[in-house]
Write a protein that binds this DNA or RNA. Structure first.
Lengths: 412, 412
DNA sequence: GCTATTTGTTCAGCGATTGAATTATTTGCC
DNA sequence: GGCAAATAATTCAATCGCTGAACAAATAGC
């Protein structure tokens, strides 16, 4: 039903090639086995002649390489399979979170080629110092990438907070950041990125958004519309609609943690009452389970909770069930509103999914009008704890896949 | 931030012209004064030569005409302004609602050229009979359109219920419809539509969705992302994101009426508890205000309520305030989730907006995290009661504007 | 060794855009 | 009134990139 929107700008002669480069490269990226030129021709509707020309451009730009082993047998001349290059452009993913810094490098094919995590309580650290540490880690990552013939073409930073279009972190409550001008602070350091037209050198985004993007591009490919919920100290959601992240009018979508689940309930620091975060946030679950809240690292508390639940601890099970019910009320609302059929539990929720899913599904079943006709899937995230960093790096290389012309036109 | 997605299919030589036809026509449609060819060239980035060629195609296809009065003065050869033709393709909008049938014809420019409303209680009428009456009205509309040199190229039907991709009305609770195969029933009647490639002869859609589309294309142009809430017996929402209606995975988005606002509150016929509909649906408001529920037509009850509130009736004011608060809780959740900055109150809510807006705004102010930085506008719909029919007809002609090639390629 | 089959390339033809030159039409100034 | 400046729109050769068909390459099966 969706109208094919015409591109914003003019469609000039050269755009034609640009669009077909993107089309063919996108097919190669999406294929589950290395396609031949002929496969691509039938899949895209272009002629084999055109596909050959386009592929030649892609091979010349080292975005694609021919896979040695013939992908399939049969009569006729054997096909040459095409795969995304394991060298060339790569994305740098950065993450500042409450209790760790993470850096990773992802190549065109979406493979994580390098990854470092530095655990530390970042709350007492000044933003500039935290970013300086991150830059140091990124420097090593750049060198490591270079050893694999990878060129970093862009960086994306994940932050647990609200980020402006300009990269200004307006508010990251659990980190204690407020109005931190990240791009300006990072500009103090020598650049690690080789600029490519069409790829911003640095984007800053919400952690939940980037984790959702990571999930979107994880293999095997899942649905193209889903809700990804990051259950950390706060609860954020990344909303993926038709294969694209929905950011909202100002980029502040996904504040599912402040959906009211008990409108006259506990006051929340957002100023509202009865927000989901007060019932299903990590602190709420941990204290409801009677665990010492002194334990700093969130993942330790989560792991402990999972252990207790595994062992059948009644308090832990009750806390998880109550949290799941609250989460389910909120999720049911979202599903009613957006008609999504998949909900992914990520971040701290991933490990708790076995106990959270049943009550969430129960609420969906009783509150969602359309659940009777078509079921809603609730499942844990496939990516690990640093999903946001991987998603961030992936978002960079996805830009190359979506607009390969910029990389191909680069001077070198 | 949104990546420009490559078109699904191949971009062939001819697509180039198709895309530029759509680009230029779209500009003409969006402009607030008739642009000249030169204006279009600078606006789109195409050369004047190309624009001339494209415009010639559009003129030849009678999609565009030259406006006699020169749009502006100054030195140099006067420009010839281009406007959407007031003849040629037109859309047929149909609406079946609880207490009326509506039919209208909208031309390329979005002007309503014909409109009929037939008030009657449709609940006791069999779907086939209701549709037969609608077809009769549509026949008159077609003749009327022909007198104005308008050709109906497609029809869209608005229904207050859940609609399938195939046009099957799965459930329209307030109308008493269940599994009504609308396309099959309408196929019994002689066709009124001249088929055009790229424009479906008939689409069936939710009333709230189509009303939101009507709002999106109403003049003067408003924001491109907003939430449109139709407060009828049920409460439906149309979600417009970046100028496109978001329909959800199966087309069943917008069921805001079943967002839980008091999770342990009144049972709802959807099977859940404390749904918004139980607190802010028309029946809930009317009975809370102590009005006789015998009054059948919903608009009569709404008008009476507005009169009472105007006169300062305490019960009516309290009922409206409570409903507004419940609505505000739900809307605050949506705004937190989707980061929208505009909420439009449509349907029965439009007339009640003066009393609903304040409590809604109050809830948004206290519950939305980002409200402090950027305000949310809540306003009544600009279209009248039959917004859905107008939106339906408009959705047809928007397809012509988005893909003029189909119309231009037609045999005649 | 021959045929059938499939892959990939080459090449003339063509549609659409481009950019510069040209024509058209008005305003303003002397 | 006549001329220069300015702006709008058209014409036309050049060019870019896709198409379609023919052709070359490489393999399996008989």
């Amino acid at each position: 039903m969706s109208l094919t929107h015409a591109p914003a700008g003019a469609v000039r002669q050269g755009s034609l090639r640009e669009l077909n480069l993107a089309l063919v490269l996108g097919r190669i990226a999406a294929a589950d086995r290395p396609p031949s030129r002929a496969d691509l021709a039938t899949a895209t509707g272009l002629t084999r002649a055109t596909v050959s020309a386009v592929v030649e451009d892609l091979l010349g730009g080292r975005l694609v390489s021919e896979s040695e082993p013939a992908p399939r047998s049969g009569a006729g001349r054997p096909a040459r399979g095409l795969v995304l290059a394991d060298q060339g452009p790569a994305g740098l993913g950065l993450e500042v979170n409450v209790d760790y810094l993470a850096v990773c490098v992802v190549d065109l094919a979406g493979q994580v080629r390098h990854r470092t995590v530095h655990r530390a309580d970042l709350r007492p650290v000044a933003p500039a110092d935290a970013l300086a540490r991150l830059v140091e880690m990124a420097g090593t990552a750049r060198d490591e990438a270079a050893r694999h013939d990878l060129t970093l073409v862009g960086a994306a930073l994940a932050v647990p907070g609200l980020v402006d279009d300009s990269g200004l972190v307006r508010l990251a409550p659990n980190l204690g950041w407020r109005d931190v001008p990240v791009p300006a602070l990072l500009a103090e350091h020598p650049p690690l990125i080789e600029q490519v037209p069409g790829v911003p050198a640095l984007t800053v985004d919400n952690e939940a958004n980037l984790a959702a993007l990571g999930e979107l591009h994880s293999r095997p490919p899942g649905p193209s519309s889903f809700l990804h919920i990051s259950g950390e100290v706060g609860i954020g959601a990344g909303i993926v609609l038709d294969g694209a992240l929905f950011r909202g009018v100002r980029g502040w979508s996904g504040e599912i943690g402040h959906l009211p689940v008990h409108p006259e309930g506990r006051p929340c620091r957002c100023g509202g009452q009865g927000c989901l975060e007060q019932y299903a946030g990590q602190e709420a679950i941990v204290s409801a389970a009677g665990l010492a809240r002194a334990e700093l690292p969130a993942d330790t508390a989560t792991a402990r909770l999972a252990e207790l639940a595994e062992a059948g601890d009644a308090d832990a099970l009750r806390a998880l069930r109550d949290a799941g019910t609250a989460l389910g009320v909120a999720v049911a609302g979202v599903v009613n509103l957006l008609d999504l059929d998949t909900v992914v539990l990520g971040g701290g929720y991933a490990a708790l999914a076995p106990w959270l899913c049943p009550p969430v599904l129960a609420e969906i079943g009783s509150r969602v009008l359309t659940a009777a006709w078509s079921p809603v899937t609730v499942r844990p995230s496939t990516l690990g704890a640093e999903a946001a960093a991987v998603g961030a790096a992936g978002s960079v290389v996805r830009r190359i896949v979506a607009q390969p012309a910029g990389w191909l036109a680069r001077p070198s």
